[in-house]
Design a protein around this nucleic acid. Structure first.
Length: 578
RNA sequence: GGGGACGUGGUCUAGGCUGGACUAGGACGCCGGAUUGUCACUCCGGAGAUCGCGGGUUCAAAUCCCGUCGUCCCCGCCA
């Protein structure tokens, strides 16, 4: 008789003889009667053993098969979907014994260190929460594939054994056995391949694909991670892509967690995001917008601010709702934090029923502070933080404080989703070490058409046709319209200090492809692990990856990375330094 | 590359500042027994740890110091 699903049995099944198999989730041995919660992929059901002595020998996580009769319970358990019934066991078959467990698997909160969990990942993944996360990931992938298929996208696989590229992250290398001294690299992303594909006539490409970057790890970074990679031919206006992606994201949220997002998502320029939120990935779930008050403090009595304005620096204000109650010591800590963030310090003003209280009031005036507060939308009971310095430093520091304070004060609404596009990133940035310009995104990013005349005259002012998708303050996707013309690509390479020869050496096949009729194109790539992490409500991507690595790139389950034999090394023409 | 936190029976942890009655305590799990309506079952009894590893200080180290390994978080890095 076929096995049935434990979790689907209901009162309507009363009286039926069923065959079930699964894991022993919990045992309650009362002597003459033993209750066992049996678990399979569908859920739990209570088994009742009466005259079966082997029931006393059951251990947690044994795998058993039983035959029994579904019966209405004397005392139902409202916590279980199957709580109205139980299965009276007539036959018990032990399929596989389990040793005592290193940690319990019947809890959502892990009761073991992460290292132990990873070493026994096969047990850790049995926990309902991890099963939920794996299913969530599957739902997201499925929703992506289904939606993109309806939009005419085709999933194409690209090589994992490819060529090392000089730009970007450190590559993972794979030695070639057949060509001594040569190496493959695992791709950091399929960037060049996907551009080649649209040039090849695959007008809408996507791929859910593993990417590899040999850099240090973080809670949201693994050496191998998964991207939703996507590219469209004849894409010249980012808005066209936004519409497609908004449709995709709305679909994914609906399918994965039943949330209806509102599209279109707000579009904010990089410059405006830096000004108002001090970040290129602003968290829009709460207000606390930073305002520029440079002009208010020009020539004011507080010399630190007045002199900063004279130097061409800025003064900006961050309103902190309800924080006028902060104590001296808390404010002191804030000042220290501001210094850590690169500011000279931070001035504050409290606005209460009694009036304005601020250490700089005597140098400026209450009136001036009130005007600053008004501009920032701060009122009674609020705190206003004021900082002066170079625009970039002030923006980033206040942006960090904005997020930290909002979290600390509980101003981030639970269950809220705030998405936005960040557009018009600068095309280049100054390389700190070498003092030359380098690509902000990558060298194939198209400049904004209006700014092309500035390329040679004022390159740092040139905006890119690139964009990020930000969800709740986390960068979740990033992309651009690409350059599809050789002449423009050559100008960009020249600006980056690359000779044609170097460019050909570094990016050869893409450049060749551009010479044979390349349509305008562009695309985007999502960090799938991060997106699933957010949808699952987890705070580490390791919780949504079946077999993740530790912070040193090790896998406690398999023991990777591991030594190899002399013979293996010899075949690869490798010798280790002692 | 740098900074910080942590490492104690199978698991999670108390003790650590202020070294000595710590003979290392608790909870869960495990083993034995009792138990016929439980659902985090309950009750009784028991086993199980040279306190990550190495060195040092000291009459004496889980405790202090140095080194090392591992884990986690952050900065750098991640076009």
């Amino acid at each position: 008789m076929a096995r049935e699903a434990c979790g689907t049995l209901r009162i309507g099944d009363e009286g039926r003889m069923v065959t079930l198999a699964g894991w022993v989730h919990r045992v309650r041995d009362l002597g003459g009667i033993t209750f066992v919660d049996l678990r399979d992929g569908s859920g739990l059901v209570q088994l009742v053993f009466r005259d079966i002595p082997e029931a006393h020998d059951l251990s947690l996580e044994d795998v058993i098969r039983i035959r029994g009769t579904v019966r209405r319970r004397e005392s139902p358990n409202p916590k279980l979907p199957t709580g109205e019934i139980e299965v009276v066991v007539e036959e018990l078959e032990m399929l596989s014994k389990s040793k005592p467990l290193p940690f319990p698997v019947d809890t959502d909160e892990p009761r073991a260190s992460e290292e132990t969990r990873l070493r026994y990942r096969f047990l850790d993944l049995r926990r309902e929460r991890m099963q939920r996360n794996l299913h969530m990931r599957h739902k997201v992938s499925l929703a992506i594939r289904n939606y993109l298929s309806t939009q005419g996208f085709v999933e194409v696989e690209t090589p994992y054994l490819t060529r090392s590229t000089p730009e970007g992250a450190r590559d993972f290398l794979v030695p070639s056995r057949l060509e001594p001294g040569k190496f493959y690299a695992l791709p950091q992303s399929p960037q060049l391949f996907k551009q080649t594909l649209v040039i090849s006539g695959v007008e809408r490409y996507f791929q859910i694909v593993r990417c590899f970057r040999d850099e240090d790890l973080r809670a949201d970074r693994q050496p191998e991670f998964t991207q939703l990679d996507l590219e469209m031919a004849f894409l010249e206006d980012p808005d066209e892509l936004f519409t497609v992606i908004e449709g995709l994201v709305v679909h994914v949220f609906r399918e994965a967690i039943g949330v209806e997002l509102e599209a279109p998502f707000p579009r904010i320029s990089y410059a405006e995001a830096m000004l108002r939120y001090g970040s290129d990935k602003p968290d829009l779930r709460f207000g606390m917008e930073i305002v520029d008050v440079t002009e208010l403090f020009r020539g004011c009595g507080f010399r630190v601010f007045a002199e900063a304005v004279e130097r061409g620096e800025v003064v900006r204000a961050l309103p902190v709702p309800g924080a006028a109650v902060k104590s001296r010591s808390e404010l002191k800590r804030l000042e220290e934090r501001a210094v850590e963030l690169g500011l000279g310090g931070v001035a504050w003003a409290k606005f209460t029923l009694e009036g304005v209280s601020s250490p700089i009031a005597k140098f400026t005036s209450e009136e001036l502070l009130r005007r600053a507060a008004e501009k920032a939308g701060a009122g009674e009971r609020d705190l206003l933080l004021l900082a002066a310095g170079p625009a970039g430093t002030v923006a980033e520091a206040l942006g960090t404080l904005r997020v930290e304070l909002a979290r600390e004060l509980g101003l981030v609404p639970k269950g809220a989703w705030a998405l936005c596009w960040i557009v018009d990133f600068p095309l280049f940035k100054l390389d700190d070490e070498e003092g030359r310009i380098i690509s902000e995104h990558h060298p194939f990013t198209s400049p904004h058409p209006d700014d092309i005349p500035l390329l040679e005259t004022d390159p740092l002012k040139v905006r890119a046709r690139s964009y990020d998708l930000v969800i709740n303050g986390v960068e979740i996707a990033s992309g651009s319209i690409r350059i599809h013309r050789r002449d423009l690509q050559e100008r960009i390479f020249k600006l980056l200090g690359l000779t044609e020869e170097e460019a050909r050496e570094k990016f050869g096949f893409l450049l060749r492809a551009l010479e044979y009729g390349a349509p305008p194109h562009g695309g985007i790539a999502f960090g799938l692990d991060r997106m699933v992490m957010m949808l699952a409500g987890e705070s580490s991507i390791r919780e949504v990856i079946a077999f993740p690595k530790t912070a040193t790139g090790a896998c406690p389950l398999t023991g990777a990375p591991a030594e190899v034999t002399e013979e293996q090394l010899r075949e690869l023409h490798l010798r280790l330094e002692s």
